[in-house]
Design a protein around this nucleic acid. Structure first.
Lengths: 192, 192
DNA sequence: ACGATACCAGACAGGTCTGTCTAATGTGCG
DNA sequence: CGCACATTAGACAGACCTGTCTGGTATCGT
């Protein structure tokens, strides 16, 4: 086994630095030089590992994607009933947006900075489809009359919470979104 | 009267070009040269009129702010009852997001591209405060039990509609937001 | 007609960006 | 040992960026 050469590979250090800087300051604003300096790595290592800045951005976004997915899936184990799980997504959102490092949705931010057809929009479409499916499944389990329709509404609330927390510099939008989700779930499960 | 010299002033042509290019491609991505070329104007005219790119960005965002405000205020005259006016905001949102040129919220996009404390965040805070007040007023007129609380929820829906339409490349999120707003309004006006 | 003012065209400086390339320096493995 | 390979530091090219400056042109009010 080769375990502890430079303690952690240049690739991983680059990814960690990119994650921190890209998220905090934007994928366009942060240059290659800032990243390799922050990672303590040579420029050639970056191009050996990723090939281009664009591919580093893709790796950064895919890492964010995997972590959000994982955070939600494991976080939801806290709750047992379908209704609590559904609202739990918004509790987890509130936890995220309350972090002092929170700067909005990494995928939307990167999309706003990039041209149409960029890797940012590509990865964004993936995570949005996953989130939509998650909400649809939770809505169905919670007994919604029209799960797809409720999922679409929850998607709006989730996006609104993500964005509002960034723009207002405050995590309360996530809790407002939770209260709205509770009201909509109530309306979608009682008799019309 | 001085009416038709170069038909329209260099300043106005610059503003029109900036509005189009900044919105379509981002304030950071689009350079000065692109703008003056698109406006058919000399570089010196830009710096005479605005002083810096940052001030041009401010003028661009303030123009967007004024137009959105105006579009909503005049658009709401279409409806007469408070409830219809409140939901009308989302109808107008659906009209906007259905435009082929729609590329998301100009203020959020510009904020995502800029550093903290930039003019983008400054102007964004202004329009968000105005929107929140608008919703609070409409919620009060519509007889909501707690207008401020409903306004906060509507704000989430509005943000979610703006963002969702951009990310999905489709205007249906605005209509979903409208349906959610109707449900929340219903819940906020009937007896608890 | 004439001066002021607005405007145009474009060179230029000084900086930053991505990406390539040259060498030298470890570091593991047969 | 000796070979292969990952890594490092940094110069360099070529493009693009903002902002300044010069000089020439047109259009206005008077």
């Amino acid at each position: 086994m080769s375990a502890a050469s430079p303690r952690v590979s240049a690739r991983d250090r680059l990814l960690a630095a990119a994650d921190e800087l890209f998220y905090a300051e934007g994928v366009h604003t942060v240059g290659i030089d800032r990243i390799i300096e922050h990672a303590g790595v040579a420029k050639a290592s970056l191009y050996n590992s990723f090939g281009s800045k664009d591919e580093l951005i893709r790796a950064y976004l895919e890492g964010r994607h995997a972590r959000r997915r994982n955070r939600i899936l494991t976080g939801l184990e806290r709750w047992s009933t379908p209704k609590d799980k559904l609202l739990g997504v918004f509790d987890l959102l509130a936890e995220q947006t309350a972090l002092p490092t929170y700067r909005g949705c990494a995928f939307y931010n990167a999309s706003a900075e990039s041209e149409p057809g960029s890797v940012a929009e590509e990865v964004s479409a993936t995570i949005r489809a996953w989130t939509r499916d998650l909400f649809a499944r939770l809505a169905r389990d919670a007994g919604a009359r029209d799960p797809e329709s409720l999922a679409a509404q929850l998607m709006i609330l989730y996006d609104g919470g993500l964005v509002g927390a960034r723009m207002d510099g405050d995590s309360s939008p996530a809790l407002v979104a939770r209260s709205a989700a509770a009201a909509l779930l109530q309306a979608a499960t009682t008799a019309p």
